[in-house]
Design a protein around this nucleic acid. Structure first.
Length: 421
DNA sequence: CGTCCACGTCTAC
DNA sequence: TAGACCTGGACGG
C-alpha cells in the first residue's frame, strides 16, 4: 500500500470509519510481530489519525476521566498518570512494503492483522494494522521520524525550501531518481511516484540530481505578467518539485487505497492512472540500490554502466496516446463510481498498449495482454538482451536487494514458515 | 517444484 | 553497498 498517498489515504480511512466509534479494552498484538506491545487500556476511547510523508500517527484518546478502579489492573500499562488514568497515546506507523489499515469484524480478523484495536459494540469490530510482509514498524509514544523531511503532500512549501536550501548536500550528488527516494528530502515519494514524476517532465532518471534541481532555484518569472497569468503558467508548466506535490495529490484524489492489490473500482482507476511505472513499452533499469526505475527515453549520464534495459510486457494498462506525458491533467475528481467500473475495464482491455519501440527494441514480444492486474513477470533475467549491452556478462551482479540467497540458506526460512500466523 | 519480483527501510561489514 | 527482514503471486520447467 505504501507511498505517501497510500499513507494519507489510510489516515482518511481511519478518520472516516472510526468517526463516532468507541473503542475499548486492550490493544492486541499478533504473536509473530516483533514490534513492541502497545500497553494501552481504556474502557472507552477514540481513535484518530494524521499522516506525514510515509508515516501515519494514530492517537488514542480515552473518553472520560475514567478512573482505574480495579486494583492491580493496568499496573503494567504505559502512560498512566499518578492517579491511574490512562493518558492519550500516539503510535507512529511506517508501512514497509505492505502495511495498511482495515476495520474488520472482530470475529474473523484478516490474515496478517498484527495490531488490533477493538470496538466497544457487541459484535466487536477491530481496527487492524495489516501487514503481509511485516516490514512495517510502529513506535509507541512515537513522533515523526527526525531525519525525515517535510511531507511532499501536506507541507509543500517547507518541502520545497528544504530541498532548495540544501542543494550542497551530498544526497544531491546522486542521480535524480535515487535522490527522489531519499526521505530526508522527499518524504512520501516512493518507487512508482519517482517514475511517474520524472516521466511527466521527461527528465532522464540518471541525470545528476543537483544539476536538475539547481535549475529551479531562481526561476525568474517575467515581472510584467499579471498574477493570474503567472499562476496559469505555473499550473501548466509545473517544475520537478511542484510535481513532487501534484502527482501524489492526483493519487489521493483518485481515492480508494491508491496502490493496492485489492481489486476495486479505485484500484482499476489507479492502474489506469499510471503512465510509466510498470507500463508496457517503458524501459527499466536497476538503480544504484537495486531498485527498478521505470522511464522513457534516455537513462542519463549517471546510468549504471553495463546495465541492461529490459522491456517487459507487463500489465494491461491503458496509456492511450503514446509517449506524450500529460503534465497538467486536471484532478480527476471522484466521479460516480459504480457504473464506471465496467466501462473502464472494457476500455482498458481494448486498448493497445500503444507505442512500441524503445530503442534496442529487439524482439520484445509485445505484451500479450494478460488478465487485468496480472503483472506478468520476467522475460529475461539473466539472458537479458545481451547483444546490445557493452558490458561483459560477468559485470552484472544480480542486485539481490530483496532476495534471500538461494542454496544453503534456504532450509531455515522454510521451517520457520511452518509456524503459521 | 523453484526462481524472480514487489509500493521500504534498517544495520552490519 | 551488500544483505536482512518477510509473504505470496506469476511464471518456467
Amino acid at each position: 500500500m505504501p507511498e505517501g498517498p497510500e499513507l494519507h489515504l489510510a489516515s482518511c480511512y481511519i478518520n472516516t470509519v472510526c468517526a463516532g466509534l468507541i473503542f475499548s479494552g486492550k490493544v492486541e498484538k499478533s504473536e509473530v510481530s516483533k514490534n513492541p506491545e502497545v500497553l494501552f487500556e481504556s474502557d472507552a476511547y477514540l481513535i484518530s489519525a494524521t499522516s506525514r510523508g510515509k508515516e501515519i500517527k494514530l492517537t488514542l484518546t480515552p473518553l472520560k476521566e475514567e478512573k482505574n478502579t480495579l486494583p492491580g489492573r493496568g499496573k503494567d500499562r504505559e502512560g498512566l498518570s499518578q492517579n491511574g488514568l490512562q493518558q492519550p497515546m500516539d503510535i507512529v506507523f511506517r508501512f514497509g512494503m505492505s502495511g495498511s489499515f482495515k476495520l474488520a469484524s472482530g470475529a474473523e480478523l484478516p490474515k496478517h492483522a498484527h495490531l488490533r484495536f477493538y470496538t466497544k459494540e457487541s459484535p466487536h469490530r477491530a481496527l487492524c494494522f495489516v501487514d503481509i510482509r511485516r516490514f512495517g514498524r510502529w513506535e509507541v509514544h512515537g513522533t515523526w521520524q527526525l531525519d525525515r523531511g517535510p511531507c511532499v503532500m501536506l507541507e509543500y512549501e517547507k518541502f520545497r525550501e528544504n530541498v532548495l536550501r540544501n542543494l550542497s548536500d551530498k544526497a544531491f550528488n546522486k542521480p535524480i531518481c535515487e535522490a527522489l527516494l531519499n526521505q530526508k528530502f522527499f518524504n512520501g515519494i516512493g518507487n512508482y511516484l519517482r517514475a511517474e514524476i520524472l516521466y511527466r517532465l521527461k527528465i532522464p532518471p540518471f541525470e545528476k540530481a543537483r544539476t536538475v534541481l539547481e535549475a529551479l532555484q531562481h526561476r525568474k518569472q517575467s515581472p510584467d505578467l499579471t498574477l493570474s497569468k503567472k499562476v496559469k503558467l505555473k499550473r501548466e508548466n509545473p517544475d520537478l518539485l511542484e510535481l513532487c506535490h501534484a502527482v501524489p495529490m492526483e493519487v489521493i484524489h483518485i481515492g480508494g487505497k491508491g496502490y493496492s492489490p485489492e481489486p476495486s473500482d479505485d484500484a482499476a482507476a489507479f492502474e489506469e492512472w499510471l503512465q510509466c511505472y510498470c507500463v508496457p513499452g517503458m524501459r527499466s533499469l536497476r538503480d544504484g540500490n537495486g531498485r527498478t526505475i521505470w522511464f522513457q527515453g534516455e537513462p542519463g549520464p549517471m546510468a549504471p554502466k553495463g546495465e541492461k534495459s529490459r522491456k517487459r510486457r507487463l500489465r494491461v494498462n491503458a496509456d492511450p496516446e503514446p509517449p506524450s506525458p500529460k503534465v497538467t491533467k486536471p484532478v480527476p475528481t471522484r466521479s460516480s463510481k459504480g457504473s464506471s467500473s465496467q466501462e473502464k475495464v472494457a476500455k482498458r482491455s481494448g486498448r493497445k498498449k500503444g507505442k512500441e519501440p524503445v530503442q534496442g527494441a529487439k524482439n520484445v514480444k509485445a505484451n500479450e495482454a494478460r488478465k487485468p492486474n496480472a503483472r506478468s513477470r520476467r522475460k529475461a533475467s539473466t539472458s537479458q538482451e545481451s547483444p546490445t549491452s557493452e558490458a561483459p556478462a560477468a559485470d552484472r551482479k544480480r542486485q539481490a536487494s530483496d532476495r534471500r540467497s538461494t542454496g544453503a540458506a534456504t532450509a531455515a526460512p522454510r521451517s520457520r514458515r511452518v509456524k503459521a500466523e
